[in-house]
């Protein structure tokens, strides 16, 4: 069997197993999805009201812009979201990392496959919800623009990779501390503001927006959203966005490798 065929089969089997497990918990899927939709829906409702009260727009963002923005946020948040820090924390604390380390497959691949399975599932549902909404509510329809959609797709993949390695690296801190998930929860709370989930970055107070641009948060949601909705798709902002994504991907991938290597040496193989 060639190396490519081996890896294709491994990923195929891991994704299949993840889907089979998910199908056991249909209510769980619906609840997580609802959680992912409610947050941007609430934000949209608030900004819609503010724009309406302000005479139709807020700093140049019209109600139409807000509607498209938060539909895009919902989709891109689902497609880039990563829950791996909690999984790793559980694996380490409960001793389930042991058999994973004894197999000829780095557990990172199981996590990547799980992410792909999760994203294919929830992303498809959110996309269908968007298409359905667009059928009845024309203002959330996006102009057909294949080049921009292609760029957005690349940005979504890079954003998902950044969030994945960021979550995986922080999750691996479970090798040292039992509080790794607290760190990721703190980061998620910051991310709600700094990634553009609660409001477009241009509407944040200037100092907060400046801080955000020096961190990875805008590159995982705000940048792909801007590409998808066509706001700020000048050549320079697109180049700046992709360079930022690549830099942060390298940073978090490097962090994952470093923590992985050191964590294995540190590992206490608890729980049997």
């Amino acid at each position: 069997m060639s190396t490519a065929a081996l890896w294709a089969r491994r990923y195929g089997a891991l994704i299949r197993a993840a889907w089979l497990v998910d199908l056991q918990y249909r209510a769980d899927i619906a609840l997580w999805l609802l959680w992912g939709i409610i947050e941007p829906a609430v934000a949209l409702g608030i900004w819609w009201s503010i724009a309406s009260a302000a005479g139709g727009d807020v700093d140049g963002f019209t109600q139409l812009d807000f509607a498209r923005y938060f539909f895009a946020v919902t989709l891109i948040n689902q497609l880039t979201q990563a829950w791996d820090a909690w999984s790793i924390d559980h694996w380490v604390a409960e001793g389930e990392m042991n058999y994973r380390l004894a197999r000829p497959l780095n557990p990172v691949h199981e996590a990547i496959a799980d992410n792909l399975a999760y994203k294919a599932r929830t992303g498809t549902i959110v996309l269908l919800v968007w298409l359905l909404a667009a059928w009845f509510w024309p203002i959330v329809r996006l102009p057909v623009h294949p080049r921009r959609w292609l760029l957005a797709a690349v940005a979504i993949v890079l954003g998902a990779a950044i969030r994945f390695f960021n979550g995986f690296a922080i999750g691996l801190l479970a090798f040292w501390t039992t509080r790794a998930t607290s760190l990721i929860e703190l980061q998620m709370a910051l991310g709600v503001f700094l990634s553009g989930q609660i409001a477009p970055l241009d509407l944040l107070p200037h100092p907060v927006a400046v801080i955000a641009h020096y961190l990875w948060f805008p590159y995982v949601i705000a940048f792909p959203v801007s590409l998808l909705t066509g706001v700020g798709d000048s050549a320079s902002s697109v180049a700046h966005g992709f360079i930022g994504q690549i830099v942060w991907l390298v940073v978090w991938w490097g962090a994952y490798r470093l923590v992985w290597r050191r964590g294995l040496v540190r590992y206490g193989a608890v729980g049997g």
Binding site: V21, Q24, G272
Partner: peptide, 13 residues
């Protein structure tokens, strides 16, 4: 490696 108090079987499947 077989751990008597931990399992690798997919619990739900």
């Amino acid at each position: 490696l077989v751990l008597g108090n931990k399992q690798q079987l997919l619990w739900d499947l």
